[in-house]
Design a protein around this nucleic acid. Structure first.
Lengths: 232, 232
DNA sequence: CCACGTTTGGTACAACGATCCAAGTTGGTG
DNA sequence: CACCAACTTGGATCGTTGTACCAAACGTGG
């Protein structure tokens, strides 16, 4: 019970970097990106802004770090347990990202922002390596590996970002109710469109009501895998 | 040359809504999202903030409106000239969006933000209708229309957003030089990764150097169309 | 010519991110 | 045991932002 440090706690460390990041993620989850202010963070941690900047730097760097932390954790799911089929491995990674963004909707914009500004960071590289590593076993010719992996990554990140939902308040105890209300509103809006200008939207409004986001997401992956199979 | 109004200019109208939006888009193109401040906008238009809020509302609404304007303009390319092949029509729409985001990089985050917050708006509906309208001619079974169109839209918007490039300053007279420098930096970073932990990144670093964004984007669409052909 | 709704320019305020600094804390050293 | 130096912390401060609000200017219909 003494202060013997299992981890290399160097000198006086009342506040840790991980603590700040975890709190930031919690605040982002609770109220979205606008809820993470330096002031609110210092108040919740009972500290000053100096400590925050000392440990994690600027607010933008904190958001990047939070993104890397969450995505990194999501990517550690099933670190190649028993060698599964390559298609299955891709599905596992894709669903891990899908669930991560469902739990942390603020990732929707932050993820693309990070990919655009820093395509060399651990987020992009980690996802790409994990997906691309299956190209060989998938039978994709070596010359098309980059194109094939890019197609999958673009689809996965696009679908995952666009499926994010932003709830206005934290009173949403029933997530299914939120989703139903959202689908109701969307289908009502689609139905109200001009049928002659938007024939397709009217044709599929029924499928909108019945579809399952997760299933549709996996269907898209299956479609792309089918398409990739023709590349050989 | 008198003040005879061709369009219904109602009363005293020194400042028009379109003027504000066009100026906002120009400022966004020049310096990114952070460059569009109400103050800078009022200064450039030689007016006050009251006029801005009267015409276009809050800053967030202005950004949404700017997004709708740019995307709407991009979607009017080839409003069904001569009935082309459905795959060609999809390519036209996809490339229009690709070029739009290349010309306006700030769309990368704003587009997903708008889709997430308002999936019923003209942006989402316009893209969806334009892509989905080709499902019938493409031979996709009616029951899969929604899934198929969603797959395409998710891929297109994902790829297009992730391909956006944000330049730091406006001194980039040579866009090709910017791109080469970017690819050089990225490939150097990929090369510097641990080859055992990231074998795939090392395997495709050569393809990264040689690839063309636009071609790769179209390859992905072709892959998905191939996959959709198997749905029948 | 008057009156009233429309449009405009500017002021004011609260909140934000970031910088800076002085005080506090701790482990090692003599 | 005393002391120093580096590390860590909390808060005060500054410049900037979005936006609510208001009074004057404007022009059109009566």
């Amino acid at each position: 019970m003494t202060t013997r440090a299992g981890r290399p706690r160097r000198r006086n460390q009342v506040l840790s970097r991980e603590q700040i990041i975890d709190t930031a993620v919690a605040m982002l989850d609770a109220g979205g990106e606008s809820a993470l202010t330096i002031r609110a963070l210092t108040e919740r941690l009972s500290t000053g802004s100096g400590a925050i900047y000392y440990h994690v730097g600027t607010r933008d760097e904190l958001l990047d770090t939070a993104t890397e932390t969450v995505i990194g954790a999501a990517l550690t799911t099933r670190p190649a347990g028993s060698a599964a089929a390559p298609a299955g491995e891709i599905r596992v990674v894709a669903l891990a990202l899908f669930d991560a963004i469902a739990a942390h909707p603020w990732l929707a914009t932050r993820l693309t922002l990070q990919i655009v500004r820093n395509p060399v960071g651990p987020v992009t590289v980690g996802i790409f390596e994990r997906i691309g590593g299956q190209m060989d076993a998938l039978g994709v010719p070596r010359a098309s590996w980059f194109d094939a992996a890019s197609t999958l990554v673009h689809y996965i990140l696009g679908a995952v970002s666009q499926n994010a939902r932003i709830e206005g308040d934290t009173s949403g105890i029933d997530p299914a109710g939120d989703r139903d209300a959202f689908v109701d509103e969307a289908s009502a809006a689609w139905q109200g469109l001009d049928p002659e200008a938007y024939p397709f939207m009217h044709a599929v409004v029924g499928q909108l009501r019945e579809h399952d986001d997760r299933e549709q997401f996996l269907t898209g992956i299956a479609v792309i895998l089918d398409g990739l199979a023709r590349l050989r």
